[in-house]
Design a protein around this nucleic acid. Structure first.
Length: 222
DNA sequence: ATCCCGAGGG
DNA sequence: CCCTCTGGAT
């Protein structure tokens, strides 16, 4: 079993050698903002709006003083922009009031910020503070389960399994590799198993192509 | 048409 | 557990 995990991680590394965040940022504050924006949107869309946004609001203090409606205009083009604009201003105010105007580097503190949930907090920890963190989003959840890395029913359970099976030094890069694989190949619907470099080690693929006798073939990998 | 590199609130 | 926010991608 551990052998299988090693093989999967090796194949993942070969397929996505330089996986990393595509978000553009120069400080923990910028990454926090970009990560909050990235929910339900592509990094590409986020990177399109952040330069002007950071020009207008370069610090938590500037953003805390902003009108959410003005912020919403700057981030038009990313989904959920009004909701996110409210989160951003509220989070900036909390940074100022509770954290001396800087981004905290602990999970519990990050989770107190409006608009910051477990996934966002872990992405900030990993990419802004180089802390081992394995954020389980929808892609990681689905891909990890298909590959057989976890049978967890909740993101927390999958997170626990992955953290147990993967050395902490590899959490960040593995997170990004699983996401890229989930987007490009191991899609939610119509996964491209035919071009998947992990197929030979994939639990879901093996069950699909070699179904147990007397059992109906699942046409949907899940 | 349907779905997201989510989170807050009912 | 469900819904909503909101716009681009497939």
């Amino acid at each position: 079993m551990a052998k299988n995990v090693d093989k999967l991680l090796e194949l993942l590394a070969q397929a996505y050698p330089e996986a990393r965040t595509e978000l553009q940022f120069r400080s923990p504050f910028e990454l926090l903002v970009a990560t909050i924006l990235s929910a339900q949107t592509t990094d590409r869309q986020v990177n399109r709006v952040t330069p002007l946004l950071f020009q207008h609001y370069p610090t938590p203090y500037a953003l805390a003083a902003a009108d959410p409606e003005d912020v919403a205009k700057d981030i038009a083009g990313v989904g959920l922009n009004r909701t996110k604009a409210r989160y951003l201003v509220a989070a900036a105010r909390k940074l100022v009031s509770d954290f001396g105007g800087s981004v905290p580097d602990s999970l519990d503190s990050l989770l107190t910020l409006p608009g910051v949930g477990r996934k966002t907090a872990k992405v900030v920890l990993a990419n802004a503070f180089s802390r081992p963190a394995l954020a389980v989003d929808t892609h990681v959840f689905r891909v990890a389960r298909r590959l057989g890395l976890s049978q967890g029913r909740t993101p927390e359970e999958v997170e626990r399994d992955l953290e147990a099976k993967i050395p902490s030094t590899h959490w960040i890069v593995t997170h990004h590799r699983l996401i890229q694989h989930g987007r490009r190949v191991c899609r939610a619907r119509n996964p491209r198993c035919g071009e998947c470099p992990l197929a030979t080690e994939c639990t879901a693929f093996l069950q699909k192509t070699q179904p147990k006798a007397g059992r109906k073939v699942e046409n949907n990998l899940a």
